[in-house]
Design a protein around this nucleic acid. Structure first.
Lengths: 208, 208, 208, 208
DNA sequence: AATGAATGAGCCTTCATTCAT
DNA sequence: GATGAATGAAGGCTCATTCAT
């Protein structure tokens, strides 16, 4: 994560990876077939971690709109709390929201529920996903380039809820809730790597 | 554009560029300092082209919401009509919506007008931009990976308008208009390059 | 001369040459077959210039030791007075004292005379040339790297005369004379180019 | 050494170096950052080798003039005995006598001693160095271009001693001694590379 | 199981030289 | 006679990958 966040996913690496990991070339190849392999693995591991936590927090809620709102808020707040995560997400670019990603696992169910319960308009599923993924990713990416107003996360969520069909009042009611920060498990990948993270100046050069 | 669309911006090229362009190595370096230089130039040229056309179509309209709606629709429809454009946009990834991009030049004015005229909620400007840029980019990117229902462009626009504060009815009124396709000038970069474009199977490997 | 002095003879050039000369690529090739061609031409022209002047100054003297001493002093003093010349000489390296060079044209006759008149020991001609060329070149080269004590030119000449067989007293008598600076003709290559010369920091990188 | 001697230091190589060394491109860059890097390293290694041997031979002598004479003779004789060394030295040009070179490490001490003991005139140190370095380098360079009379090495040494202040008789007494050839250690860089050296015709093209 | 030296394909970049205008 | 766009050979350098130890 440290390397991908800093260099971008496509800027060559392996040497950086192994030196950052304190591991030999040979060892790297014992565990990963290629660089992208590692990136995919890291992405999946990270996704699994976050998804589990989000689902824990969300599973008790009846209202799909509330589940969706809270989930997206948690995602955004985690990105703000862990710049490494925001940076990694930006580097992974649209791949981070690709087929095997957290958001795409998490969202469709809640959206579908919302439509069935009449809380959301009957938008085509893909369109909803594009809007949410795109909006969230851009907001997070921006947060890793310049500092963003942390309150704006609520605006993002409210706007997304409105686009799905909620009234402004309703949208704000859900978006405005206080949200306790995620509690990462002791050995969490994100927690461990964030400990070593020292953000570098952003050249913007290799950004996606 | 042909090369960037096919290979992705970061899968290095130059050799492909010059053979596609039918130009020698030395000539390339006479005009561009690096590969990324070329990409930036192409992106800017393309942006200039489209922006000009969009502004022509939009400048007569009084309602900022209408201007925004039409502009975004035109952008989306152009991407669907010119797969090369969609593909290029996906390859350029978030860079295509970066600081010097079409959308960021086009949008802020209209959004601001809309807020001042009371048509839009008073969202933070950046949040609006994130939502629109992100949503549109994701929709276009998806259109270049698999085929999308061309009607969904209207859904995207309607949803964005709702998120900005329009009622559903109002949003649909604007999003549902018929839109005449863009008429690219004879010597347009996009038109000329599209003539040579034969979409390739998408490996997904290097996709952003 | 400006370019060769600055970049060194082997560091690639032509582009620098033509831009310094304010001349087009094509024009360059009309007059010179290659870069080295130009360098040889410049070296010859410069040599001719200096040789003419030295011979004028020296031809009236009967004593071959005196002729040699004055000639070498003039060469050295010119190098100190025209840093461009010193720099160029250093860049040309041993080539500047190569087969077609000033010194090799100038010296042998006087040395031979000196031997025949019993002023010099009967050293092998080549050995004398090595000592004089080598010593002078190194002194000049050093002067273009760091500043040297201008008085040391006399020491060089005195030492060379001693090595050829003169007594220390005799050597100093000849080496210590005041020497009027060379008067370069109006259109002299060296004078004209020196006008434009602004010494750059010496990296020492490409130095010979 | 083989490559530098043959091609000259500035006629770029790497490809020649690695094919001569029977080593891959990557391996080259594992050990040296650039071509010049390698050249510097070779020069230093060679210098270290010779300096060690010379010091061994010279350290027992009380008379600094004798030490200097023997050292220079050894240097010259080694160059004549190992044409590769002569050729390499010529190619390295003035760099071979540059700041980190053998001669500059070796000479100053003895010269200083000589002055203090009244054997040498009180020449400025740099001037002595210029004369000795320049004279010796030129003699060696010439030996690698055409064949030189091996006896002339003595003339060079005698002349240098005279220039430093010794009488002709004294100079010859020291310069004329028989000198046993240097005994290079088994694994000496110079010895090993000389084994593979087959001198090529000298085009003179790239000569320094 | 870990190591890291070695490999070489792949790409980038420069620059001498040509030649149509 | 002068120009400068175009060329492409020549070399530089990096980095993913292999493999003997």
């Amino acid at each position: 994560m440290l390397v991908f966040a800093e260099k971008g996913v496509d800027a060559s690496v392996i040497d950086d990876v192994i030196s950052t990991a304190g591991v030999s070339r040979g060892t790297f190849y014992k565990y990963f077939k290629s660089n992208r392999d590692l990136m995919v693995a890291a992405n999946e591991e990270l996704g699994r971690e976050l998804l589990t936590l989000v689902l824990n927090r969300v599973s008790g809620l009846d209202d799909p709109a509330e589940r969706l709102a809270l989930g997206v808020r948690l995602f955004i707040e985690t990105a703000l709390a862990f710049p490494l995560f925001a940076r990694f997400t930006r580097s992974a670019g649209m791949a981070s929201v690709g087929p095997r990603s957290l958001l795409l696992d998490y969202l469709p169910g809640h959206i579908q529920d919302g439509i069935e319960q009449g809380r959301f308009f009957d938008l085509p599923q893909e369109v909803s996903l594009d809007l949410i993924s795109g909006g969230v990713l851009f907001y997070i990416a921006r947060s890793s380039e310049s500092s963003v107003d942390p309150e704006h996360g609520r605006h993002v969520v409210a706007a997304l809820l409105r686009s799905l069909g909620l009234s402004d009042a309703e949208a704000w009611r859900l978006a405005d809730r206080e949200v306790a920060p995620m509690e990462l498990p002791e050995n969490s990948l994100l927690r461990r790597s964030s400990l070593r993270y020292r953000p570098q100046g952003d050249s913007g050069e290799d950004a996606q």
